[in-house]
Design a protein around this nucleic acid. Structure first.
Length: 469
RNA sequence: CGGGGCGUAGCGCAGCUUGGUUAGCGCGCCUGGUUUGGGACCAGGAGGUCCCGGGUUCGAAUCCCGGCGCCCCGACCA
């Protein structure tokens, strides 16, 4: 029988394809309240592995995990002018509790700079207390106008790091360290996601920040997605929350703070960055299930062989699952393809007669037979090969779909299908407005060699512009 | 908040224009059987406040009035 597509093809309707994948890969469902999300076990397993990989790197960068309350007094937000202005439209505010109207409304946190700032002020007394490096894993709420599963839900999960430093230089260095050693390292080596690293123009900065650093990935439809972001808050929040320390010279000085986050949006990024018309494609290092062993027929010898193959894979350190019996072979293959499991091991009577099993790569559908003894070591090699092939493939797509242009008009044309790169001086504030009228924004500023600028006042900067999620 | 569209079984939809018996179809689900090397097939079966309220009528999923909800495109945004 012919292979027909189970999902809406990407080329027909990309957003529809995305929704199909989320539903059919059993990642998530819409929650009962508009914009909320139920994360199903398979989606959660992927998020858990993202969390683990990032948490390890966060701790490696010296930050400690802590937890701050979900509820924040409204007055905290009002202490930083830009912050309250930026977040007011999307706050969820509790006005009643215990059957009575509250004396002061309580905000359900959209982010925790304010409440953490309040406690940093308490905990920081001396330069010896610095730097103070905190991170928390939490849920936050932002009342979004147009929610989409994973990409923009009213409630989402994330980590938010918050640090306080004695000097601008120390804060700046730490922000860069986080961005490179936590986010970029995770993105490249686990998620197989190449991005453009750069800083946001003033118009796109976090509310209250003096500088926002970003990692901009390109989805399969050519649109941009901010995968992670790091903010230098300067002394704005330190001033608003009285985060002072006594210096070595005995002077009272204001701290410099940073904040940085990555969220469940990254799951959406995973789907749209690597997914194809057959469904999700999960990079091996991230995959909760790296290999699925499929019994072609529900027969005792085949099932025995499946268990043996699975056992050898497991002892080699492969995250493996056995699938036998429950329906037609074709159906099961399709189901695992939709879930994006990197490696499929097909075990059937025909192969077994020759003492082999068939290994199939999810990323390129390559198929080959290997002896039972060799399966574990071949699989380990293949998982590595798939991991780097996915990264290289994504890198190539990013490069191919980025056009170097000279003018705003050329940029508008190029961003119909991908990214455009041009001189920041060729854009400016009026250029930004022209672009924005066509739903194109400046994703980040970079030095001409692609490295990250210290700030947007550097001369000779390039900008990457694109439509975005 | 501006512009479009839609509410009928778990999901996707038809029926409405021109009111008329027990409201249909596909997928999914349940039972039994045959199957299983790329979404299997046969037989039987379960499942509905036709978004809500009011009105017209002998009779409303269908016509009228009012409400609510959702989706898509923009502005906001991790």
């Amino acid at each position: 029988m012919a292979t027909q597509s189970v999902l809406t093809p990407q080329a027909d309707d990309f957003p529809r394809w995305y929704q199909d994948v989320v539903a059919k890969a059993e990642m998530a469902d819409n929650g009962p309240v508009r914009g909320t999300m139920v994360i199903r076990p398979y989606g959660w397993a992927i998020w858990e592995r993202m969390q683990a990989a990032m948490d390890e790197r966060i701790k490696g960068a010296g930050a400690q995990n802590a937890y701050f309350p979900l509820f924040i007094p409204l007055s905290y937000f009002q202490r930083e002018a830009e912050h309250v202005e930026g977040f007011s439209p999307e706050l969820a505010i509790v006005t009643h509790a215990g059957g009575e109207e509250l004396a002061e409304p309580i905000v359900v946190r959209p982010t925790s700079e304010t409440v953490i700032g309040e406690y940093m002020a308490k905990w920081v007394q001396s330069y010896r207390d610095l730097p103070l490096l905190l991170n928390q894993w939490s849920n936050v709420v932002r009342w979004e106008l147009r929610p989409r599963l994973f990409l923009r839900s009213s409630e989402f999960l994330w980590q938010e790091g918050h640090t306080a430093h004695a000097s601008y230089d120390d804060a700046n260095a730490y922000a860069n360290k986080i961005h490179l050693e936590v986010y970029n390292d995770f993105l490249e080596n686990v998620l197989a996601a190449p991005t453009y690293l750069g800083i946001k123009p003033a118009s796109e900065r976090f509310a209250g920040a003096i500088n926002s650093i970003t990692a901009e990935g390109m989805m399969r439809d050519g649109k941009a997605l901010q995968m992670a972001t790091t903010h230098e808050l300067g002394q704005n929040f330190a001033r608003a929350f009285d985060i002072y320390f006594q210096s070595e010279a005995g002077q009272a000085e204001l701290c410099h703070t940073t904040s940085w986050g990555a969220s469940t949006r990254m799951v959406g990024g995973l789907i749209m960055l690597h997914g194809d018309d057959q469904g999700l494609v999960v990079p091996p290092r991230l995959a909760p299930i790296q290999a699925v062993v499929i019994a072609v027929r529900d027969e005792p010898e085949v099932n025995d062989a499946c268990e043996k193959v699975a056992a050898s894979l497991k002892s080699a350190g492969v995250r493996v699952q056995v699938d036998r019996g429950r329906g037609s072979f074709g159906r099961r293959v399709t189901d695992w393809e939709i879930k994006g499991v990197p490696l499929r091991v097909e075990v059937g009577p025909r192969d077994l007669k020759e003492g082999v099993v068939t290994l199939v790569r999810r990323d390129n559908a390559d198929k080959a037979a290997f002896s039972l003894d060799a399966v574990a070591s071949v699989a380990l090699d293949l998982l590595d090969v798939i991991q780097s092939a996915m990264f290289e493939g994504a890198k190539q797509r990013l490069a191919d779909a980025t056009s170097d242009v000279l003018t705003i008009d050329e940029a508008l044309e190029a961003t119909e299908t991908g990214f455009a790169r041009l001189k920041w001086s060729a854009v400016g504030e009026s250029g930004e407005a022209t672009l924005k009228a066509r739903a194109v924004t400046v994703r980040c500023l970079q030095r001409p060699d692609g490295s990250m600028p210290a700030n947007d006042r550097e001369a000779e900067l390039d900008c990457i512009v694109a439509k975005s999620y």
